[in-house]
Simulated assay, not measured.
Amino acid sequence: MQEILSKFDAQGARVATVLSVIHYTTDEERQKYINDGYIPISGEDYQHYIGNRGVGDNGTGYIRDTKTGKPVSAPPAPPVDEEPQEPPVDAERLAVYEAMAAQAERLAAQAERIAALEVALKTKGCDRK
């Protein structure tokens, strides 16, 4: 049977796993992993850490208990801040929309002036076509 060596972070989460015959074959190679913080775990414990035994009591998986060395339910995930009710304003897009609105106002005013000039020309007898 293959030996399983796993490395855990300070909170007990599994960060890496190596297997005998696949990752190491000699005692010297194995010792390098042990010196790097890897510890032997059972196949059943490994199944918990990789999620094959469910997601634990809090839905966040399993971590290694530092006292017993066995898998325990990981703590609940931290609460997520609610999204703001109003979407954030993108200053660049707002500036572009404001410039477009100002340009539309200028074009509308220019169209009114042109229409007024055409009316004035028609009343003076100059029909421009």
Rank of each mutant, 00 (worst) to 15 (best):
M1S: 12
L5I: 10
F8C: 08
F8N: 07
F8Y: 10
A10K: 06
Q11N: 13
A13S: 14
A13R: 15
A13M: 05
V15D: 05
A16E: 06
T17E: 11
V18D: 07
L19Y: 11
S20I: 02
V21N: 06
V21R: 10
I22H: 08
T26D: 02
D27H: 11
E28W: 00
E28I: 00
E28A: 05
Q31Y: 10
Q31M: 13
K32V: 14
K32S: 09
Y33L: 06
Y33A: 02
N35A: 15
D36C: 04
Y38W: 07
I41M: 02
E44T: 07
E44Q: 08
E44L: 07
D45L: 05
D45S: 13
D45E: 10
Y46T: 02
Y46L: 10
Q47A: 09
Q47I: 00
H48W: 07
Y49F: 13
I50Y: 02
I50H: 01
N52Q: 12
R53Y: 03
G54Q: 01
V55F: 13
G56L: 01
D57T: 06
N58W: 02
T60S: 10
T68A: 11
T68E: 12
T68M: 10
K70D: 15
V72F: 12
S73N: 12
A77S: 09
P78R: 09
P78L: 03
P79G: 05
P79R: 08
P79T: 06
V80M: 08
D81T: 08
D81G: 09
E83N: 04
P84S: 05
Q85R: 11
E86P: 03
E86D: 13
P87Q: 14
P88Y: 00
P88S: 01
V89Y: 11
V89D: 10
A91S: 09
E92S: 00
E92L: 01
L94M: 03
V96F: 04
Y97A: 01
E98Y: 00
E98T: 00
E98C: 01
A99T: 08
M100W: 07
A101L: 12
A101S: 15
A104F: 01
E105T: 14
A108D: 12
A109Y: 11
A111S: 13
A111V: 09
A111I: 09
R113M: 07
A115Y: 03
A116L: 05
L121T: 11
C126T: 09
K129D: 13
K129C: 09
